[in-house]
Computed example of a mutant assay.
Amino acid sequence: MNRTYLPGILAMAAIVVASNILVQFLFGQWLTWGAFTYPFAFLVTDLMNRLYGAGPARRVVAAGFAVGVVCSLIGTQIVGEFGPLVTLRIAIGSGTAFLVAQMMDVAVFSALRDGAWWRAPLVSTLVGATLDTALFFSIAFSAGLSWIEPANDVAWANETLPLLGVGPMVPLWVSLAVADWSVKLGLALIALVPFRLIVKRLRPAAV
């Protein structure tokens, strides 16, 4: 791996590790602290793509995926109040969502890279974040996918409640997903600021 890409790899690894730790701590009723750190993985991917191209961006994604797998393996060995901190469904959902969403981000960014400076990072992050949320929460908690890990009781996540406490009746995991997705969308807009500043500093002609 080219040493030029090391900052991106380290940043992605730090985000993945921090998110795996912070997801254990609640923020309000619908979120965890990990919801506020993980979306910056898209910023790292987009910066690598803009500065070095799609190939290096994919390598950084692969490194992040490897770190995520290690975190999941460690999590399966740590037993909390309700069992292992990371179940098989959560591990599969997390890994699948990360890899598919980040690779989609790279593809969308590459397709839009010649447009206005903000279009590629914004659209690719929105598409990737939406895909990430849909894949993770459905794989990890949907009753329809209980065959993935029959011994894992996810009845709590499928309890029917008003959406975010005020909307139509939906399974709890849907409210969790919508809250998580909303944070990702907000941070996608905020991340445009550091994206612009970093790219302008490191490679002005690329902005």
Results as ranks from 00 to 15, higher is better:
4 T>H: 07
5 Y>S: 15
5 Y>G: 11
6 L>Y: 05
6 L>P: 00
7 P>H: 03
8 G>Q: 04
12 M>T: 02
15 I>L: 10
15 I>M: 13
15 I>A: 12
17 V>H: 07
20 N>R: 09
21 I>H: 12
23 V>F: 10
25 F>A: 12
25 F>Q: 10
25 F>V: 14
25 F>R: 14
26 L>M: 07
26 L>T: 08
27 F>T: 15
27 F>Y: 15
31 L>G: 02
31 L>D: 02
31 L>A: 07
35 A>F: 12
36 F>C: 05
37 T>K: 11
39 P>D: 01
40 F>L: 14
41 A>P: 05
42 F>G: 13
44 V>T: 06
45 T>V: 12
46 D>N: 05
48 M>K: 13
48 M>A: 10
49 N>A: 15
50 R>V: 03
51 L>T: 07
54 A>E: 09
55 G>K: 06
55 G>L: 05
56 P>N: 04
58 R>E: 10
58 R>F: 09
59 R>S: 14
59 R>Q: 15
59 R>E: 08
61 V>H: 09
62 A>T: 10
62 A>S: 09
62 A>H: 11
63 A>M: 11
63 A>D: 13
66 A>H: 01
67 V>P: 00
67 V>S: 04
69 V>G: 13
70 V>I: 10
74 I>T: 04
75 G>L: 12
76 T>R: 13
77 Q>T: 14
78 I>V: 15
80 G>H: 08
81 E>H: 08
83 G>S: 01
84 P>D: 03
84 P>T: 02
86 V>C: 12
89 R>I: 04
90 I>W: 07
91 A>Q: 09
95 G>R: 15
95 G>Y: 15
96 T>C: 14
97 A>W: 11
100 V>Y: 11
100 V>P: 11
102 Q>W: 08
104 M>V: 07
105 D>Q: 07
105 D>Y: 07
105 D>V: 06
111 A>I: 10
113 R>T: 06
115 G>K: 12
116 A>S: 08
117 W>A: 11
117 W>I: 06
117 W>E: 00
118 W>P: 00
119 R>G: 08
119 R>V: 14
119 R>A: 14
120 A>G: 01
120 A>S: 02
121 P>I: 06
125 T>F: 10
125 T>I: 07
127 V>F: 11
127 V>R: 14
131 L>C: 12
132 D>T: 08
134 A>P: 06
138 S>N: 12
141 F>P: 00
143 A>Y: 15
146 S>P: 02
147 W>E: 00
147 W>P: 00
148 I>N: 06
148 I>K: 13
148 I>D: 00
148 I>Q: 06
150 P>D: 00
155 A>S: 01
157 A>I: 03
157 A>C: 02
158 N>A: 00
162 P>V: 03
162 P>F: 07
163 L>M: 02
164 L>R: 00
166 V>G: 02
166 V>Y: 10
168 P>V: 13
170 V>C: 11
170 V>L: 11
176 L>Y: 08
177 A>T: 03
179 A>W: 04
182 S>C: 11
183 V>K: 14
183 V>R: 11
184 K>H: 15
185 L>F: 06
188 A>R: 06
189 L>D: 00
190 I>L: 14
191 A>D: 01
193 V>T: 01
193 V>C: 01
193 V>K: 09
196 R>D: 12
198 I>C: 02
203 R>T: 14
205 A>T: 05
